[in-house]
Structure formats: structure tokens, C-alpha cells
Simulated scan of single mutants.
Amino acid sequence: MQYIYLHGFASSPNSAKARDIQSYLANLHVNIKIPDLNNGDFSHLTITRQLKQVEKEFPRDSTPVTLIGSSLGGLTAAFLAENYISVQRLVLLAPAFGFLSHWTHALGEEKLQRWRQTKYMMVYHYGSQCELPLHYDFVTDAALYKEDKLRRPIPTLILHGINDEVIPIQASRDFAQQHHTVELVELNTDHGMYDVVDNIKEAISRFCQLP
């Protein structure tokens, strides 16, 4: 089994959560790849680009893949699983279902219009710890990816915080209700989930049947 971790939006492979999970799996003698989805150019990030980048990480033989995705990485993982039969299992951490509508609503029509006109908007990047410009193509591309297109029955574990201030937990509840192969675990935490990493690791170990 090949394990691949997909970090969230404006994050990096060096996020505390990614490294904690990587260290935990290493102690179980499980290697996990953590590609940098910024790909050296956060400003031109799109979901389509992430899909193409991660697909190149897949084994060229018949080795099955487990994807662990956080937030936007979780949404990306779900679409990879839809399109690649080699993906046999998903672990989604606060997956960004419906994120575009939540984000654009939070921005407001004025900021969104300005972004559309000027092409770039400054976004705080947690991995770089500074603001970076993001092209409006991110929005137009993201609009192509709707959860109703996710129909492949694949074993999926979703962990989501009941106090998530970015992606309401109802998004994961709705998804789980519509997909019989999904197990939803609700945790008393927010979108970052940093205070429940031990719970996440235990859930991953159980779901993936690790020693």
C-alpha cells in the first residue's frame, strides 16, 4: 500500500499535522509521501494542477494507494479517488466540501469583484508565513469540482471538527449521508484540528488496519 498525504490550502508539507502523522506512521514502519502542492508557484494554484501533480506520485505498478487529505487536500483526494481505481481508501480531515461557496460568501461581492478584475488577491500563506498573490483562475477552476460528481463507492473515513469555522461540519454530514461507504467521526475541535492529532492518528491506524 502506498500512502500519500495531501496538505491543505495555503499550507505545506511542513505543517505540524502532516509531520506528526508522518512521524507516527514511520514508527509503524509505514512510509508516506507528502508532495508540496504549492509546486513552487502558489500564485497559480488550481485544483486541476493538484490532481495532475499528485497523480504523478502514484505507483506505476498495481500497488494500491491510500490518500490522506486535509481540507482542500481532502477534496483533491476525493476527486483523485473518483478518477483513479488505484486509490483504494481515503482518510479526509475536514475536507473542503463546498468550500468555494463558503469562501466567496465570506469575502463578499466587493472583494470578489475586485479579485476578478485585478486577477490577483493577496492570501495569507501559513507555510510561508506571509501574504502571497493568488490568481483568480483558482476560483474559476474550483467551480468545476462539485461533490455531486463523487459517486465511486470507496472506503472513506472523514474526521471533522464540530466547531469548524471554515468548512461547516454539515458539509461532511451531508456527504456521509449520501455515500454508504463513508464513516464520519465528529471531533470537538476547529478546522485546524491541531488539538486532536492523537485522535486522528488512532483513527487512521484503526481504519487502515495498521499494526
Rank of each mutant, 00 (worst) to 15 (best):
L100C: 04
P64W: 14
P168M: 06
R116T: 08
L132E: 13
E147F: 08
K149C: 11
I21E: 04
L51I: 15
E55P: 11
C208G: 02
F99G: 02
R173D: 00
G98Q: 00
P168D: 01
Y136V: 15
S71G: 09
N83M: 13
I162N: 09
I162A: 08
G161L: 06
V185E: 11
K119R: 10
L157I: 05
P168K: 05
V30F: 03
S11Y: 03
F42Y: 07
Q2M: 11
P13S: 09
R60C: 13
E82F: 03
T48P: 12
F175R: 03
L75C: 05
Y126R: 06
A142G: 12
E110C: 06
F42D: 08
I85R: 15
G127A: 06
P59I: 10
A78H: 03
W103N: 01
T48I: 14
N188R: 11
R49T: 11
V197C: 08
D61F: 14
F99T: 00
G74F: 07
I85E: 15
E186K: 09
L100K: 03
Q50F: 14
L134G: 05
N199A: 10
D137Q: 15
V196L: 03
I167G: 00
P155W: 02
P95D: 01
K17Y: 05
L132A: 09
D61Q: 12
K111D: 07
T46D: 11
R173E: 01
S70H: 05
R49C: 10
L210A: 04
N31A: 14
Q88P: 04
T156L: 04
A78N: 04
E109M: 12
W115C: 00
N83G: 08
N163Q: 14
Q50K: 13
L72R: 06
F175C: 03
N188T: 09
H180Y: 14
L6M: 07
S62A: 15
D198I: 13
H44T: 12
R173H: 07
H7P: 00
S23P: 07
V65R: 04
Y124M: 04
D174S: 01
S23E: 13
H105M: 11
W103C: 01
G127Q: 05
M1P: 09
V87C: 03
T76D: 05
D61Y: 14
F97W: 01
L25D: 06
Y126N: 07
R19T: 14
L157G: 00
A171C: 08
T118F: 09
